[in-house]
């Protein structure tokens, strides 16, 4: 053995940052090793956008007028953030079931790094997903009409939604512990994704269904970003529609406030 095997010195904070980055980089290396997986992941929401935009779009009417594709793009942006939960869940449950989490826990690394790394990697992935979708949307004639400031606020709300999904995903991954149960998760996530105002305005639905759809946390984000982008279809007289900007912040923050401590507790309980 020729290599000197001494750990470098450094403060706790320095190592928390460095270890978090090492775990983040692990995901970046996954993407580099398996670029096809990454690309398929980016293309999937674009496919939904194209399908609904061109296949069904002709038959859709936006109340109050306006182009359906202008209406659709913000919805799919939010939907792609929602589906991110599956990636987070798969990554967390795979590590737990394969014993990788245990190996990390038996090492002298910062305890926070596993979660920090997961967070940063997933948020980078979310930003890439948004960028790809925005390019596709622009190509379809979508655009933002209220200037760059509100547009960035809209992207901020989308990432906030992804952050909420991240913590739900981490918690479910720690609870279910098997990557195979992602199927069960999909059965849950898809209806939530579709029971929203992504593809159709709630006004066009039966009263009770419209209410359910308006209370779907994702719908708040969609309405809010339609407003911020200046895209059609964000109006409405209900309280939820009137306060969508507020609710687009409140819902995700509530979810993080609930699932962050639950996840921490679950993580601690791995040692029980």
């Amino acid at each position: 053995m020729t290599t000197r095997l001494e750990a470098l010195p450094g403060s706790r904070l320095k190592w928390a940052v460095a270890d978090g980055w090492t775990i983040t980089r692990r995901d970046l290396v996954h993407w580099a090793n398996h670029p096809v997986q990454l690309i398929v992941g980016l293309l999937f929401p674009i496919m939904i956008l194209l399908m609904f935009g061109y296949l069904f779009g002709g038959a859709m009417k936006v109340p109050g007028g306006g182009d359906y594709r202008e209406f659709l793009v913000p919805g799919v942006l939010a939907l792609s953030m929602m589906f991110g939960i599956e990636a987070t869940f798969t990554a967390v449950s795979t590590d737990v079931s394969r014993g990788v989490t245990d190996r990390f826990r038996s090492m002298p690394m910062a305890g926070s790094a596993v979660v920090v790394g997961r967070c940063v990697a997933d948020m980078i992935n979310a930003a890439l997903t948004l960028a790809a979708l925005v390019l596709a949307g622009l190509a379809m004639g979508w655009g933002w009409h209220r200037g760059i400031g509100p547009a960035f606020a809209a992207f901020g709300l989308l990432l906030l939604l992804r952050l909420a999904m991240l913590w739900v995903g981490i918690h479910l991954g720690l609870v279910l512990r098997s990557p195979e149960s992602v199927m069960a998760l999909q059965i849950l996530v898809w209806p939530v994704g579709f029971l929203s105002n992504v593809f159709a305005p709630p006004e066009t639905m039966p009263g009770w269904l419209g209410t359910v759809v308006e209370w779907n946390p994702m719908s708040a984000t969609v309405t809010a970003i339609r407003e911020l982008f200046g895209n059609p279809g964000w109006g409405g007289d209900s309280w939820m529609a009137q306060h969508s900007l507020l609710m687009a912040v409140v819902w995700p923050v509530l979810m993080v406030a609930l699932f962050f401590p639950l996840s921490v507790r679950r993580y601690r309980r791995l040692s029980r």
Binding site: T3, L5, A7, L8, G10, W15, A18, D19, T22, I23, R25, R26, V29, H30, N33, H34, T94, R98, G99, V100, D102, R103, F104, S106, M107, P108, M109, A113
Partner: peptide, 29 residues
């Protein structure tokens, strides 16, 4: 300590070298 558990606990999507380098960094080499 070093731990080698009952089931191989390595990252399937990384190469062997990438796994060892990552763990090395996490041991603060």
């Amino acid at each position: 300590i070093g731990l080698v558990g009952q089931h191989a606990a390595v990252d399937e999507q990384l190469s062997g070298r990438q796994n060892l380098e990552m763990f090395g960094r996490l041991y603060h080499l």
